[in-house]
Amino acid sequence: MTAATPHVRSGRLRTALVVGGGAVALLVSVAVAMTLGPTDVSLVNVRDIVLNHLGLADIPVRAAANAIVWEDRLPRALVAAACGAGLGLCGVVMQALLRNPLADPFILGVSSGASTGAVLVAVLGLGAGTLGLSAGAFVGALVAFALVLLLARAASAGTSGVILAGVAGTHFFSAVTSLVVFAFADSDATRGVMFWLLGSLEGMRWNHVVLAAVVVALGSVLIGASAQTLDAFAFGDDVAASLGIHVGRVRLLLFVLTALMTATLVSVAGAIGFVGLVLPHAARLLVGPRHARVIPATIVLGALFMVWVDAASRTAFAPSPLPVGVGTALVGVPVFVALLVRRKAARS
């Protein structure tokens, strides 16, 4: 067995520092986020409440503080972390499969389809009360993804066909959403729907935490196991095929996995943009292009990013929260521009 080169050892060390340091920063960030809000809660209170619920202590705490931290702020922060990690991870997969640095999880039409499904349930009452907003969004996301796949298959133009089909599907479902809201929604329904469409983590509970965490954990394991496959796809279909990869089958499976993860997260938290676009680039800038390093770095950075964006979104205009999707766009656009400028400077 040959010894690792200094360059490989340096990359591994840098990845370990980014992932390890990011994980510590994430734990601290979640704890600090618990203290932010109209009601003051100290870090000591947060520690005591968490230890009490984990069965590791029995420390007297105020009932109000306990409810605020355990039933409201902690589930919200954990869902934010799961959404950031999951959407960032889906962005890594899409950019590798499509060989397009501007690809993100929503390029498959999942977000616009979820919006249409949510609007049909909220405004038209589709499902006769058997479907909630999240269930409608999930069904709509899957329908949109199926349509995009059918269009891409009909186009038979490889990755460019997928991108074009995704653009067509996105605009179609966005138009349907706008039509339903314009023609059938009253002012109250319009306001509620638009708040969800912009991404909202209001009202997160522990069942949302479990759903998002399980989906992201399973997706992380499966995508992490495909790191070398994603490396091959990044060099093109011919290279992947020469390495014994069944290009069509593997790409379809990864598309389906990405769509299911994105659909689930969007059904929980609404459409949160720019996370899947920006965070993979930030991870590559820190740890290099190999997916075995990019994947864990993106998971940690995405979770950290979303925790802080959500904390800022719910406190900047308190008591009225800012939709978290607006926050990710306000932060994500300047960060993405800075990454592009730095990337160009590094190449020149």
Rank of each mutant, 00 (worst) to 15 (best):
L265F: 10
V119E: 00
M204H: 02
V209E: 01
L201M: 01
R99Q: 05
A64E: 14
R9C: 03
H281V: 00
V8R: 15
V110Y: 00
L89G: 00
A168T: 07
L108E: 00
P334N: 14
A259V: 01
G55D: 09
F317G: 02
H171A: 15
S174R: 06
T298M: 09
R62Q: 15
F195S: 13
A25C: 03
S112V: 08
V8Q: 14
P319D: 01
D237G: 09
L322T: 12
V324T: 12
V180A: 08
L322Q: 07
V193E: 01
L13V: 11
V256G: 11
R251A: 10
L211Q: 13
L285V: 03
L36K: 13
V176K: 12
G125F: 06
H7T: 15
L36Q: 13
G21I: 06
F172W: 08
T328S: 11
L151K: 01
F317H: 15
A213L: 12
A259C: 02
L285W: 12
F182L: 14
G132W: 04
G84C: 07
T298F: 08
G84D: 02
D186R: 02
P105E: 11
L133F: 05
V139W: 00
L131D: 02
V239F: 09
A311I: 03
I107R: 01
A227R: 07
G203R: 11
A154I: 09
W70R: 07
G88D: 02
A154N: 04
V341Y: 06
M34C: 15
W206Q: 05
V209H: 03
A312K: 08
A146G: 11
L120K: 01
A152C: 10
F235S: 12
V139A: 13
A146Q: 04
S160N: 13
R76M: 09
G136V: 00
I245V: 14
F172D: 10
A144S: 15
H246G: 14
N52M: 05
L260S: 07
I59W: 12
N52I: 05
F184L: 11
P296Q: 07
G332C: 11
F336D: 10
L120G: 10
R153K: 13
S187W: 12
G136L: 00
V32P: 04
F145A: 11
A232H: 09
F195P: 07
L179E: 09
R284H: 02
R153D: 15
A80L: 01
G22F: 08
T262N: 13
L51S: 07
A16W: 13
N207C: 03
L277R: 10
K344E: 14
T229Q: 09
S178Q: 12
W70G: 08
V333M: 12
A329H: 00
V309H: 07
R251D: 06
V216M: 06
V30F: 05
A80M: 02
A31E: 07
G244I: 14
L124V: 01
